[in-house]
Design a protein around this nucleic acid. Sequence first.
DNA 1: AAACCATCTATAATCATTCTAAATCGACAC
DNA 2: GTGTCGATTTAGAATGATTATAGATGGTTT
Lengths: 144, 144
Amino acid sequence: MLVKRTYTQEELTALLQRHGINPTAQRLEIARLLFARAEHVSAEDVFMLVNTAATPVSKATVYNTLGLFAERGLIREVIADPNKVFYDPNTAPHYHFYDVATGQLTDIDAEGVQITGLPSLPEGARMEGVDVIVRLRQSDRPTH
Amino acid sequence: MLVKRTYTQEELTALLQRHGINPTAQRLEIARLLFARAEHVSAEDVFMLVNTAATPVSKATVYNTLGLFAERGLIREVIADPNKVFYDPNTAPHYHFYDVATGQLTDIDAEGVQITGLPSLPEGARMEGVDVIVRLRQSDRPTH
DNA sequence: AAACCATCTATAATCATTCTAAATCGACAC
DNA sequence: GTGTCGATTTAGAATGATTATAGATGGTTT
Ligand SMILES: [Mn+2]
Ligand SMILES: [Mn+2]
Ligand SMILES: [Zn+2]
Ligand SMILES: [Zn+2]
């Protein structure tokens, strides 16, 4: 279970380095923000969040950094919405509720969830991960 | 299990009508093609396939028609690739392998697969469906 | 200081998808 | 047959997320 908290600059630096990422100012800033919120954010979200702070970061760098973080396993991509990729600072195995109306993603703890009976993988294939997305729609009639 | 076969014009017409869809020439053509292949296709795929035949169909109509079919439950959308939506003529519950390198989607029969221990849904939410996507990557070293 | 290399940035390009507004079509009425 | 009407289709423009380009910037090394 990922705990929402603030990391010191040293912890963030070590975190990036542990993943083979050169800890630049922009990358540290984006990492700080990702792990402070511990929520599912889009590139646009990150771009806006990072630019409420003092130092501006370009959109290109936001995309490059999120891509780099995902590639190095610091965060993971969640493909649930056809319009944008979500980035998830929680890389532990877990699943998602997706509210198709609002676009809200919510974690489902892997603890207790069992998926059995999956067929064996095609020849020569390695499993990268299993995504489970439970699509939800809020009932039209609100509880009164 | 969806069987790959050709439908008569009458069967297709009845199929659309059963889903509350006015069976126009373009819609019948697209439906015919979808159910003949019984594969996962993108809008672009459908656009190209439908335009190898005699009667041309516009891109706008392809998108409108696929959207309409999905909305009425004749086909389903699969969100697996961040770059495009796949449309699946198989609406029976089933899951997918997704080859992240090639973008290839392959069915996993729901038969035998069990997902247990999912938490109860948030208050007032209805489940629209459960998507399971097993992400695969072909091993770099080919079997020799 | 000059060279070097990684990174960052503004901006253009790409590309799937959606939007717009004008044709076209088909059923029905006259 | 001709006219009308609503539904559908269409070409093309617009949108928006993402990626590509190519030049600036910033440390670091000699
Ligand atoms: Mn999209
Ligand atoms: Mn995309
Ligand atoms: Zn998550
Ligand atoms: Zn399928």
